[in-house]
């Protein structure tokens, strides 16, 4: 049914599409491969700050019995995925220009959030929810301060 002329035209159209697709993918790869700057570090810190605050809120709600343990565990489990991703992102970030004091301060805080969110899954993970919530509030506050420092550079 399709004639030779149509197939030639189709090939030309396909080539144009492929070139556009390759250009789009190449630019996406270029953007993602660019070395991270202070802005990217700030975004990563902000993400972790939000997650710490959310974990704190979940633990506090559990301690106050405004949420049931099943919800608290399930929500922490769902949050854990994003926390692990954010922690890995921060670990692997090579910031240009380097900001070792900032990253060195943020990394252990990220580990604390990850440990806390996974600890909720333990059988007695919610026993000291109140204390854990207070801990996460401190983590969130420190990350907030780091974020403010980066923003004001």
């Amino acid at each position: 049914m399709t004639t030779r002329l149509q197939r030639h035209r189709a090939l030309r159209e396909a080539l144009v599409l492929i070139v556009l697709l390759v250009a789009a993918v190449a630019s996406m790869v270029w953007v993602s491969q660019r070395p991270a700057g202070p802005d990217e570090l700030q975004i990563s810190v902000a993400t972790l700050r939000s997650q710490a605050a959310e974990l704190q809120q979940t633990l506090a709600a559990s301690a106050e019995a405004s949420v049931n343990p099943r919800f608290a565990r399930s929500h922490a489990l769902q949050l854990a995925k994003s926390v692990d991703a954010a922690r890995k992102e921060l670990e692997g970030m090579a910031v240009q220009p380097p900001l070792p004091p900032v990253q060195d301060e943020a990394r252990p805080l990220a580990v604390q959030i990850a440990s806390a969110v996974h600890a909720v899954q333990q059988p007695d993970g919610l026993r000291s929810a109140s204390a854990a919530a207070a801990g996460q509030r401190q983590v969130a506050n420190r990350l907030d301060a780091i974020e403010a420092t980066l923003k004001n550079r």
């Binding site: 049914m1 189709a10 159209e13």
Partner: peptide, 22 residues
């Protein structure tokens, strides 16, 4: 498909014929 394939751009026609026949 054998009817509308003649009315679309060539690339769509080639893919359409492959998917739906003629």
């Amino acid at each position: 498909p054998g009817a509308w394939l003649t009315r679309v751009p060539s690339l769509v026609a080639v893919i359409g014929e492959w998917l739906f026949g003629r």
